[in-house]
Structure formats: C-alpha cells, structure tokens
Amino acid sequence: MSQDISKVAKILTAQSIKGFYNPFTHIKFPETLDRRNWFTSPELISIYGSSEWEALSEEQRQTLSFFETVNFFSLNVHGEKSLLEGLSRRLYDNNDADVTDYIHHFIDEENKHMYFFGTFCEKYAGKIYPDRKLIFPREYAEGEEEFLFFIKVFVFEEIVDYYNVTAARDERVMALSREINANHHEDEARHLAFGRVILNNLFKTYSPQWSTETLAGVREYIKNYYMTTWREYYNPDIYIDMGLAHPYDLVSRTFESTKAKEHRATASRASLNYLKKCRIIEENFEL
C-alpha cells in the first residue's frame, strides 16, 4: 500500500474514533410511523414527474415515498452486507497496519448503518425488499479483482450519498428518515474519501500491466455496474405494494424516460468526473 493510503487511513481512523457512537441508543425508533409524511424528497422518487406520478393524490405520493425509502434502505442493507464480506476478507490481508486499523472502523460503521436501515424496514414495512443481484465467480488478471471490489464500493456509496444528502437537507422529509440519512452521510464522507484514494492507487498500480482486453473489460464492467446499481432504484416491488398497474412495464418505462436519465446523470456526475480525472474511464457515459 502506498504512503498516501496509510496517511489517509490514519486520519480517517482518528476521525472515526472521535465520531464513535452506540448504534442501539443513537437513533430512536418510535413504535409506529404516520405514513402521511414525506419519507424522502419527492424529486428522488423513481416515477417523479411522470404521468403516473401526476395521477396520484398527495396522500398516495407520500405513501409511495415510504415504499421508495424502504427500497432505498433495503438496497443499502444488501450493499453493506456484501461490503462487509469483502472488507472482512481484507482484514490483516495487507502489510499496512494503518489500513487494517481503518478497515476495523469501516466494518464497525457499516454494521451500524445496516442496523439503522434494517430496523426501519423491518419495523415499519415488516420486510426488506429482496435483492436481485447475483455475482458469479470468474477469473481475474492481477489486481483486477481488488480493483473491481473497490469500484463496486465506490459506485454504490457515491450514488447512495447523493440520496442521503438530498433527503437529509430537505425540511419536508420526516425527522427519523432525515436523521438516518444525515447520520449515514456523516460516516460515509470518510468511506468515500478512503474509496477514492484507494481506487486511484490500485488503478495506478495494476492497470499498466493489464492487457488491452483486461482494461477494456474493466471499463465495460464499470459501466455495467453503474447501470445495475441504478436499476435497483426502480424496483417493481415498490409499485406492487402501491397497487400501481403493470409494475414491470412501469419499471422499464420509467428507467428509460428522459427525466430519469437526467436524474441519473446529475446524481452520477461527481463520481464519473472523479473516475475520468483518474483516467479510470475515458469519457463520462450516459446512464
């Protein structure tokens, strides 16, 4: 590991210790929630601005904001679960004590987040929406698997953060949801910093040795991973729970709509710009 990663890891560890909290008392979960509330910003709702959206009453839109939040929190649970698996595998697996120290905090914080997201879903929706993402084993060039693991973390956390920041700042959003979003953003700021440094470093270390096909494959993977990550924000289960007609067609129609494409471009811009700056991707792509 390079010196700058050690340095960053050390700083982040100090910050994590300073911000350490007990997840079981940190956020209070009331027994019940009034669904006549905004659980997220209306603009973050998948079908926002569509004719289906226009046809809903204010009350239905708020109920939809609840299920969209359950989906957002569910996808966080799934993402954090595989993140924890990957991070655990990396504990004591490098010769940098500072990085190992920081991974302990990373794991600690992701486990806390999962508790918040999972508790919200189980307590108020009685479920976590299931995951449709399957990753099959394959072979990798040297450093490729490591790089792709951190790319997945990067894409997942960067997009989530856009939603966290937007909902946390929005005064229309009910207090508990704002608090979960704000708390997540606070911890994630450190993870994002770590993720960015490590990605840049891994790419600089390994990509010069990759074949043209490997590099092209990695770039293709990044694009696909963005797409797949975004797909999870358009979940037919939400529409089924809302009783909307033709939920699967609504998913494809919404996903392909200009409005949704613009939204994805906005929410992905900062992270794509970073990848481009590091020359990990050649050009920003359409999502």
């Binding site: 399957l134 993977y221 797909r231």
Partner: peptide
C-alpha cells in the same frame, strides 16, 4: 451475459 445482465434477466422472467 455478464452477472450484471442477470439482474435484468430475473426481472424479465418475473414479468
């Protein structure tokens, strides 16, 4: 098909 296509395929089959 990459594993990333599979998620879409699952939706297609469900539909």
């Amino acid at each position: 098909l990459s594993s990333l296509h599979v998620m879409e395929l699952i939706l297609e089959v469900e539909k």
